[in-house]
């Protein structure tokens, strides 16, 4: 199912019962400037990957900032597992299970991979739990285990991204917000990054992904949302969006490879 209204209902392909993260009719903007988000609704099911695509200035990164508490919405509600968390700060949202991996590289460059990852679990007081989580992410991201004692700043862009992913998973988040994880990476490295996103989903973590590399992102996601002018323009199962020829022309930079199977709009 798909919709072009401002507040679509996004179905969960994995779970029929409720949504993990819900942004409901959000209106938000920066300072006194005009609104960036104008009545946007996005829902992320537990364990699912939802991808936001759209042109520059559509408000994709702003959605993630509202979801992680970096930006308070002017109206609308943010719900985590049914609980209203609207207006809470990043640390409280982190405690509620929402981790945000920012755009660009955000590793601590002069600290080791180990320190970077352990900082992700800084709010956990129990050392045994920290060790157990560190083992979990080392297992999930072999590169992180391999470069455990290296300075994070010496890693390449794609490797740093994996360290950021690992860091975000230390607090056992229920949903990870990824802002353009493939930015500035070559095609092979982008492939490595998307491989890791798939592994995060396999580990049971829901992902809300913002990507300019729309075709690649929709191939990984369960649900796709096309944003334009601060609203969800179209949403539906990612594979259906990918196959839509008109959508391909408009937003994905060319025709899709497969024959079209147009989603309902």
């Amino acid at each position: 199912m798909a919709s072009d209204s401002g507040s679509p209902t996004v179905p969960s392909p994995r779970s029929d019962s409720g949504f993990l993260l819900e942004l409901d009719d959000i209106r938000a903007g920066y300072g006194r400037a005009a609104l960036v988000l104008r009545g946007l609704t996005v829902r992320v099911p537990a364990g699912g990957v939802v991808c936001l695509v759209g042109p520059n200035g559509a408000g994709k990164s702003t959605v993630l900032k509202v979801a992680s508490g970096l930006l308070a919405p002017r109206s609308g509600r943010v719900l985590v597992d049914g609980e209203d968390v609207t207006g809470r700060g990043p640390q409280q949202l982190l405690a509620a299970g929402v981790a945000h991996v920012l755009q660009g590289h955000s590793v601590f460059r002069e600290m080791t991979v180990a320190e970077n990852v352990l900082l992700g679990g800084y709010t956990i007081k129990d050392k045994a739990v920290v060790a157990e989580r560190a083992d979990f992410v080392r297992d999930l991201f072999p590169l992180v285990a391999e470069r455990w004692t290296s300075l994070a700043g010496l890693l390449s862009g794609g490797q740093q991204k994996q360290v950021e992913f690992a860091r975000s998973l230390m607090v056992r988040p229920r949903v990870v917000l990824l802002d353009e994880p493939s930015m500035g990476l070559d095609p092979k490295t982008t492939g490595v990054v998307f491989e890791q996103i798939a592994r995060m989903r396999e580990a049971g973590t829901a992902v809300l992904l913002v990507e300019q590399n729309a075709r690649r992102a929709l191939e990984t996601a369960d649900i796709g949302c096309v944003l334009d002018l601060g609203r969800v323009h179209i949403s539906g199962p990612a594979r259906e969006l990918l196959a839509d020829p008109q959508l391909g022309e408009l937003y994905l930079g060319g025709r899709p490879a497969q024959p079209p199977a147009a989603p309902k709009r």
């Binding site: 640390q91 982190l94 945000h100 955000s106 601590f108 800084y122």
Partner: peptide, 16 residues
């Protein structure tokens, strides 16, 4: 470790 994170990027350290 927390102090060094402040040196690297105080806002990021706080957000963690």
């Amino acid at each position: 470790m927390g102090l060094k994170a402040i040196r690297e990027d105080e806002d990021k350290a706080q957000s963690l």
